[in-house]
Design a binder for these strands. Structure first.
Length: 723
DNA sequence: AGCACGCCGACT
DNA sequence: GTCGGCGTGCTC
């Protein structure tokens, strides 16, 4: 075999490939072991005989070819290349998201499911008499008349018996490989569909076989899942595979069970709490077609499939689809790219679609499927605003709020309260001089936690004891300001002493499994007052909840993040969906000082769909995404001057790119975090191509600056939040 | 990223 | 006199 040059992607944070000599048969997507400086690295063959190869005299040779067949097939490589280009992230880092740790470390990639034992010719020629009194061996021999898997045999025999047969040359061990799953003859009966659902299912089913995008907009309880299931049905009948992406909290055992029971085909899950071996197995089972359906979070997007025929993204508006560190990709956006590469349809579902997806509908890129009615015919919840201005407040609640809670409790219903602030109080304040407890490493106050007698910074995690004296004037008059869930729990307990109060936040569910326990209790109708943070807002359904109270919506109304209104509207709508799924229509109560706020009025009176359309118009007029493209450079350093200097160099570079508008350098909303200063520069443009070209050119420069080694910098393309 | 080389301060 | 701090260069 002639020597050839191969281009290899290596697991290093450099935006370049490295070329090597190789005299073995190898194809793109295979792993190779290569010398790299003083080290040896495992890389992926990216290209054979690149036209612009490195000086041939300086090339080193591949140490070892690790795969005969590619671990990354062409469609995945295409996706990864696209992602690395689009997010301007080093390919080596991108690869890390796509390969299970075991494969990155060089584990054999053969899809071995297990071992099979069968008799050799010598084994077949044995006779019963030869075993004499060895009853166990005789039994083994008899069972081996048909090939058996090792797992089957170990149920009845000891490993050393099996080894004995092999040593005698009587039995042969062969690997059993994973392979395409068996389609089920029968599926569980599907639920009857209403006309809108039927229309949606038909549309997706007819689109199978080529790329297309659907946005399924269905209010909470309108039966989106049944649409997913029936869209999946013909795919798994024909042996195709389906990838279902769900938000981080959306992956419950119930979801898995529902898919498994319905189709009777293998379903796998993929999430961040799996061991390396579990991941490796799911990865192999998807690659070989052994799994029909994989339900997973963000990074499941990169799983290999033998025959991917349909992608589904549930709760497509959810922020957890955007990775918030390192390789900052958006799983929804890359999933669309993947569907186009694979030539299959993709279905995005949400009760509160992102403005990005709605814009795609308006521009004709996505087909719009709507489910306007709650499937079981329940009524939508009614929303009431509680004007807090000049109200006699008690425990952070207006009189009307307390009355409503009481009414619903009397009816034997559960009441759900949202307060997006953990702890007892957001800070302690000095009664004499106004000094407040601050974190000295972050630009933030430290939250007072009463139970643990601690001040905790929710941004860097630092904890310290509660001071007895003011840090400013030495006074001992320190009092909590503001209200957190811990305090609200205490106050609710006092106000409603005969009712149980359950608090669900990160502090109360520390112990493993205690969340599930609390949720089960709630479903059984046990606790009557449930309060919690964000984590309660998503994904869970509480049929016995008659009233939902949002303690404080104001902080989101006047935020400097342009996405805050969208996120608030989504939260309000999602939360409203938690109430009244039983026979009674639910009720939602919003406490606000701004009852006349246009956003609140729009969402409440006209619903999310209407709000979203006016919000989109506003984004268009104010020159914001999705009508223009946004990227941002963020930089952190212990010295403020280094941050500014680095960003200034970026800004200077942009003088050559008049089509890209700059905002900044400016401090991040949280300027100091964990002892480091954080600054950013925002880049806006209507011309996506200009943005990407400019980023390519500035990044080449950035890598040359020695200053870049003294700061920690990152680039965020399509940032989800501007922190 | 990792690893080496190189040049300055405080110590067995 | 060395050990080791991190600034800088390099990896096909």
């Amino acid at each position: 075999m002639a020597v050839m040059v191969i281009r290899v992607a290596l697991p290093i944070p450099l935006r370049v490939h490295f070329d090597y000599l190789c005299d073995e048969q190898v194809s793109p997507g295979c792993r190779v072991l290569v010398p790299f400086g003083k080290r040896e690295l495992i890389g992926i063959v990216w290209q054979l005989n690149p036209s612009d190869s490195y000086d041939a005299a300086q090339l080193k040779a591949v140490t070892q070819v690790l795969d005969q067949t590619p671990v990354l097939a062409a469609p995945i490589r295409q996706l990864l290349s696209f992602a690395a280009d689009y997010y301007h992230h080093p390919l080596g880092d991108v690869l890390t998201s796509a390969l299970p740790a075991l494969l990155r470390d060089g584990k054999n990639a053969d899809p071995v499911k297990g071992l099979s034992y069968s008799l050799t010719q010598a084994g077949k020629h044995l006779t019963e008499q030869q075993f004499k009194a060895a009853k166990k061996r005789l039994a083994l021999w008899q069972q081996l008349q048909q090939p058996q898997t090792e797992t089957q045999l170990l149920e009845h025999f000891q490993r050393k018996e099996l080894q004995y047969f092999v040593e005698q040359g009587w039995a042969l061990v062969t690997p059993v490989l994973y392979g395409p799953y068996q389609t089920a003859d029968e599926q569980q009966k599907s639920l009857p569909l209403n006309p809108a659902q039927a229309l949606a299912v038909t549309a997706v089913q007819q689109a199978l076989g080529s790329f297309s995008c659907f946005l399924l907009e269905g209010v909470t309880g309108s039966g989106k899942t049944e649409v997913y299931l029936q869209a999946i049905s013909p795919v798994v009948k024909k042996g195709g595979q389906v990838l279902v992406l769900v938000p981080e909290i959306g992956l419950t055992p119930q979801t898995l069970a529902r898919f498994e029971q319905r189709f009777g085909v293998p379903v796998g899950v993929w999430h961040s709490n799996m061991t390396d071996l579990e991941r490796f197995t799911v990865w192999q089972r998807s690659q070989t077609g052994d799994l029909a359906i994989v339900i997973g979070t963000r990074s499941a997007l990169f799983l290999p499939f033998l025959k991917l025929d349909l992608l589904i993204i549930d709760e497509e508006h959810d922020n957890s689809f955007k990775q918030q560190d390192g390789f900052r990709y958006h799983a929804r956006d890359l999933a669309i790219k993947r569907a186009s590469i694979q030539g299959c349809p993709i279905l995005l579902g949400s009760a509160t679609p992102s403005l990005e997806s709605l814009a795609n509908v308006q521009q004709g890129r996505f087909a719009h499927l709507e489910l306007p009615d709650r499937a079981a015919g329940q009524l939508m919840p009614t929303v009431e605003l509680v004007d807090l201005k000049q109200q006699q407040m008690m425990h952070g609640m207006a009189g009307l709020t307390r009355q409503r809670i009481e009414q619903h409790l009397k009816l034997g219903q559960q009441v759900l309260l949202f307060l997006n602030r953990r702890g007892f109080a957001p800070a302690l304040i000095c009664h004499e001089c106004g000094w407040m407890t601050e974190c000295h490493r972050c630009s933030a106050f430290t939250t007072f936690h009463k139970q643990s007698r601690q001040l905790v910074c929710h941004h860097c995690g630092a904890t310290k004891g509660v001071p007895h004296q003011c840090g400013g004037c030495g006074s001992t008059q320190l009092a909590p300001v503001g209200q957190g869930t811990e305090q609200l729990e205490e106050q609710l307990q006092q106000l409603f002493p005969t009712h149980t109060v359950t608090r669900l936040d990160r502090d109360s569910i520390r112990r493993k499994g205690s969340l599930q326990k609390a949720l089960d209790q709630i479903l059984q109708g046990e606790p009557q007052l449930i309060l919690g943070t964000q984590m309660l807002a998503k994904g869970h359904h509480f049929p016995n909840v008659g009233l939902v109270v949002i303690i404080d919506v104001d902080s989101a109304l006047y935020s400097n993040d342009f996405r805050a209104p969208e996120q608030l509207a989504q939260l309000l709508t999602q939360v409203s969906g938690r109430a009244g799924r039983g026979s009674q229509p639910g009720k939602v109560l919003l406490q606000t000082h701004y009852p006349g706020h246009a956003l609140l009025q729009d969402v409440i009176q006209n619903g999310y769909a209407s709000f979203a359309r006016s919000a989109l118009k506003e984004r268009q007029q104010t020159f914001l995404p999705p009508f223009m493209f946004l990227a941002l450079f963020r930089v952190e350093a212990h010295q403020l001057e280094l941050c500014k200097e680095w960003l200034q160099k970026v800004a200077d570079h942009y003088k050559d790119w008049p089509q890209v508008q700059l905002l900044g350098p400016l401090a991040c909303p949280m300027e100091r975090k964990a002892g480091k200063y954080r600054w950013q520069i925002q880049l806006f443009t209507k011309d996506r191509k200009q943005l990407h070209q400019s980023l390519d050119s500035v990044l080449t420069e950035v890598s040359r600056w020695s200053l870049s080694r003294k700061v920690k910098w990152q680039l965020d393309v399509d940032p989800q939040d501007l922190n």
